[in-house]
Amino acid sequence: MRRSNRRGIPHGFLMSLPMYLFTLFFVLAPLCYMVILSFLTRAEVWGVVHEVTLDNYRNILTPVYLKTFYESLKLAVICVVLIILTGYPFGYFMAKLSSTWKRRVSMLLMIPFWTSALIRMYGWIIIFRSNGILDKLLMGLHITKEPLKLLYTYPAVVVGMVYALVPFMIFAVYSSAEKMDWSLVEAARDLGASPAKAFFTVTLRLTMPGLLSGVVLTFIPSMGLFFIADILGGNKVVLVGSLIQEQLMKARNWPFAAALSVVLMILTSLIIWLYRRVTKVRDLEGFY
């Protein structure tokens, strides 16, 4: 989109003007507001008073809150690893299906999104609870003897997170693998590479942008998704997301919630920056 009209305004710019305006009002402005909020002081009853302070940030450094960050990070990393292990092969093989099956599979992946994620999490409760569907199945098959009591445990939260986020990885990898020139794999085989070797030297490298953007797309939400930990984890698993929500909605400490959000954002950006440095992939699938 480098063409210009006679007045010298690039067409591309005019076309994407609504996008810029949208970003300005709905992303940038709230973000600035949040950053400002994080330096203000909580009012006695409602809202904030305009007294600039660093107390909110100092507060985060207490061990309780640091531990929450650490737990969130740990959970996010576990989830992303599991998402890669399940989502990558899925997206990869999906790209090799015939076009009819590609359409069918993406349909199946899309359907859950028509239902609220919250409701889908309640579905997991039915599966996980004592003597729920999973227990009945496992005991019916004589694999386990007693109910597993999976609900309100760490694994339940992990399963819920992976379930909620894996489609993003699948679609990111799929769109990368879909574009791949499979004759390159044939060329690798022709030059003496075994299927596995060809995969690691060619396919994986060329689908890296998809994998990477899948990681970004799933890592960020898995740091912040609070309702999954709340619903499937009871109160046992406290994450930054839940903490922010609690501070905002229950404790009504807006500045502290804002400060937590800012730190979370910086932390996430930092990790992604580091990740991109390490993997040396410059372009992300679907990003710039």
Binding site: D181, S183, L184, E186, A187, A188, D190, L191, V202, R205, L206
Partner: peptide, 13 residues
């Protein structure tokens, strides 16, 4: 045997 592919199939990375 080795092949010179029609579209060259050079590894872009």
């Amino acid at each position: 045997v080795n092949t010179v592919f029609q579209n060259y199939a050079l590894f872009p990375h």
